[in-house]
């Protein structure tokens, strides 16, 4: 479904993606993990065509995505920051996105799930951060796209909304979707993810199931397993993409770390 080969991207002197290879061909939930600045968001934005790679190729259903736009019909994307035109109301925004996409949508169902009915006529500028994130989620889940990309979906959500979100993700998984999630909340990953894709310094250092990662690192706790991965203590040799022998000497950048699960 998504095939990435030798992807390179640098912002000025900062090499963000460094010969990254990734192939996602089966449906399921893929958690993209990595410390801050490891290239998660850049990778996602490359898939969406928002960031144009310096070299390498991204194939979506076998077709290169560079300067294409039609393929985005088959992707739903939840951006990290939910900010909208202040003067539009929620229903106008929904109407606008529907108008732009021209695809069948089922927003009423999602609106009910997140209990957004009272806000439907409110102006977006007056909504709280959490409510805006819910609107953001409605925009993402109202389409029946084969690929769903969520960048930090849990930000600002209350526990009720979080449960609704998890149910939604589970339901979409059952429908055979490919779901890519970036998050720093490890409990979320443990609960949902079929596979972990671990990024460090612009490469994929591990791709496999949560259990495979745990047993590889000899830890029961995913957070600790990730921490050991960051320290370079348990590098899996089979799943490394772009391994070049320097894997054991991971640079110190990993220190920026993963936030713990405090806001769940």
């Amino acid at each position: 479904m998504i095939e990435i080969r030798n992807l390179k991207k640098s912002f000025k002197k900062n090499q963000v993606l460094n010969n990254l290879d990734l192939e996602i061909s089966t449906p399921g939930i893929f958690a993209v993990l990595g410390p801050n600045g490891s290239g998660k968001t850049t990778l996602i934005k490359c898939i969406l065509g928002m960031v144009l790679p310096d070299s390498g190729q991204i194939l979506f259903d076998g077709i290169p995505v560079m300067h294409e736009w039609q393929y985005r019909r088959r992707i739903s994307y939840l951006p990290q920051i939910a900010r909208f035109p202040e003067n539009l109301t929620v229903s106008e925004l929904l109407h606008m996105i529907r108008d732009v996409r021209q695809q069948p949508s089922h927003e009423q169902e999602i609106i009910r799930m997140f209990e957004l009915e009272p806000f439907i006529k409110s102006r977006l500028g007056t909504l709280s951060g959490g409510t805006r994130q819910k609107v953001n989620l409605v925009l993402t889940f109202m389409y029946d796209s084969p690929v769903i990309i969520l960048d930090e979906p849990t930000a600002g959500l209350d526990p009720v909304a979080l449960i609704a979100l998890k149910e939604l993700i589970h339901a979409e998984r059952k429908n055979g979707k490919v779901i890519l999630i970036t998050t720093h909340v490890m409990s979320f990953v443990e609960e949902l993810a079929d596979e972990v894709v671990f990024l460090l310094d612009g490469r994929i250092r591990f791709k496999g199931s949560v259990n495979a990662l745990k047993s590889r690192c000899g830890e029961d706790n995913l957070e600790r397993a990730i921490a050991r991965l960051l320290k370079g203590e348990c590098i899996p040799d089979d799943n490394l993409s772009g391994a070049d022998g320097q894997g054991s000497a991971f640079p110190k950048t990993a220190g920026s770390g993963l936030k713990s699960q405090h806001h769940v």
Binding site: M50, W69, Y71, R72, P79, A82, R83, I97, V100
Partner: peptide, 17 residues
Amino acid sequence: HQSREFTELLLAQPVRR
């Protein structure tokens, strides 16, 4: 500047840049 985030949302939609 004000519509930057919203522009990002639009960029992820099937629309020409």
